[in-house]
Design a protein around this nucleic acid. Structure first.
Lengths: 174, 174
DNA sequence: ATCCGCATGTAACAGGTTACATGATTCA
DNA sequence: TGAATCATGTAACCTGTTACATGCGGAT
């Protein structure tokens, strides 16, 4: 369901696009919120076309198909946003790791956390660059709040990793 | 894979336990990091037993089976924690929603965000109660860092929802 | 006796990943 | 002409959810 919603949202934001375009849009804009590969996107678009949520303006040089969202598609997106209670169920490898870290020797755990912190630090820098650049973009608002959320989440992970490493090292008096 | 690791971790932390015990432990301790139902846990334990990661001390009143982690199981857990690069791939309905919110009228989006903020506020209160209580618990450390991470993440979501709602309302001068 | 909680399982389906497979167009 | 990129698809497999199914043991 969520994949379908993400596609409807992207089509709303970008106007008509092909499966290929949407796959790249996924990576560049929404990947921080949702992941999908082309092998999942293409069949889904076909299903959505069959159900009347999008239409195909079959054209394009290679086999390229361009999809446009329909009224019904727009309605489905709206209903989902307004009426569906979001699933808050978590499944995060990072958090799982955090939970299990105390099963390792403190200095090993701390080293792993520092490495994590560095990864997140780099990711944070990237996102902040995007934020700085985006003021020039076409869509003035679309994705801005989501980007802000992403930045905060990455910063949180970096800080937590760093502080937890310090805490672990501190408590052993290494 | 991650489910298996979570189970090995819980067995390490709690000592021998049944599938039923682990299902409840999952809910009470680790659900913030990973979700699993008994229908997934029971078959996985059977597979793990077949592969020698856990042993069954078949006993117990009803069909109860008690599982114990083996040396090989402990090795597998350790290797995963140390060597496996954690998947950072995100899939969050909350973030997806955040991304798509600008497709709605500002006042509708703001109202949805306020409702979200309230949910997270309640969740935050719950987690903070747990943290306050946990100082009395048996395991001095296990899960403390993960709980801290969970609290920060929920707080972030509450604050972001609140602030984004204010921002949206502010920019329309309603 | 009856109900609740303990305790384990399976089957059907939905959602996702990896790998395989193919071919057209553009550019150097 | 060869490489990179555009462009779409399918098949096998793994993970996870929902629902169904069964039965024991303890407490009232």
């Amino acid at each position: 369901m969520s994949l379908r919603i993400a596609l409807l949202g992207l089509l709303t934001a970008s106007g008509p696009a092909s499966g290929y375009d949407l796959t790249k849009l996924f990576e560049s804009s929404i990947s921080n919120a949702w992941h999908a590969r082309h092998s999942q996107i293409y069949p889904e678009l076909n299903k959505m076309a069959a159900e009347g949520l999008v239409t195909v303006d079959e054209e394009g040089p290679r086999g390229r198909k361009t999809y446009t969202i329909t009224e019904e598609g727009a309605r489905e997106l709206r209903t989902w946003l307004i009426e569906k209670e979001p699933s808050r169920s978590q499944r995060s490898e990072v958090a799982l790791r955090a939970f299990l870290l105390p099963t390792l020797e403190p200095h090993v755990a701390a080293a792993l956390l520092r490495a994590e912190a560095e990864v997140y630090g780099r990711r944070l820098a990237m996102l902040e660059t995007i934020r700085a650049t985006k003021s020039l973009a076409k869509q003035p608002d679309f994705g801005r709040h989501a980007l802000e959320l992403g930045i905060r989440q990455v910063r949180l992970l970096r800080d937590w990793s760093e502080e937890t490493a310090a805490d672990i090292e501190g408590s052993t008096g290494s």
